[in-house]
Amino acid sequence: MNRVRFLFIIAAILLFAGFGPIPCVSGAEPDSPSEVTLADTPHEEETSTAAPASQAPRWIDPDRINLMVILGLFFFLVLLFIRKAVKGSPLYVRRISGLGAIEEAIGRATEMGKAVLYVPGIDDVNNIQTIYSMVILGSVAKIVAKYETPLIVPVCKAFVVPLAEETVKQGYLDAGHPDAYNPDNIRYLSDEQFAFTAGVDGIMLREKPAANLFLGSFFAESLILAETGFSTGAIQIAGTANIHQLPFFVVACDYTLIGEEFFAATAYLSDEPKLVGTLKGSDWMKVFLIAALIVGVILETFGVTAFTEWLTVQ
């Protein structure tokens, strides 16, 4: 927690040092640059009498205060449960068969003497799913290194290449097998969606990996990849938060991590208290949202719309 506090303090200091003090409500501090800009406008005289303070640049968007409150509550819950978990409170995580099957799939690949294929999606690192896929890749790399099984990681975005290389290398290092790391198995194929799909299909058909892990952000290529993998007889585990692709993975893969299960992977695999704490925070936020839904339904039924209007994102 000290490190967390430290990071927050550093962030706060840098932010406020960079932007100065936040002015009160209207944002129209006498010496602020925004005030100068407004005073220089040609219509200043016309509007001066009626110029409401709200015309000055605002520091808080009133249309997004609802989201800010909900986000603040969520952050509070997550930090609260991280604190609880670190203090040693037992937190239960239900069994997620898809995550349990990852080691089983790698074990099967090891027995067959074949490689494990890990596809981290086709999105760039600005997508949180790609970042999280790298986090899972680290855990997978550790297991793979332990079994001394080749791990092939085809990459769709150039920016993901160094991330994947570092993550896999670190996984092998953590497992105590740095020499087993093969940089040639982190393969940048193409930034183009279907060129990448063709490349991955080629790897599946030529090298016949025994386990295919599709974990990340996928789009129209999901079914092409999963069906090709199915035709090679590989055990397949998929996970994505792109809900339109979930049905395709459910049909063609042995296990599918649906939405939030995908984001629970590292907490489940590592059992680290801080990570499990974030899961619990998410769960309690869901409880809150379900309660809000029920309250909203009841209020709407009786013609009270204020609550749902407040929750509507502009």
Binding site: Y132, G259, E260, S282, L289
Partner: peptide, 16 residues
């Protein structure tokens, strides 16, 4: 599913 995934994404962002 979308609500669960969104909360997972936000908590992951916070963890990062």
């Amino acid at each position: 599913i979308l609500i669960g995934a969104a909360l997972g994404a936000i908590s992951t962002g916070l963890k990062v």
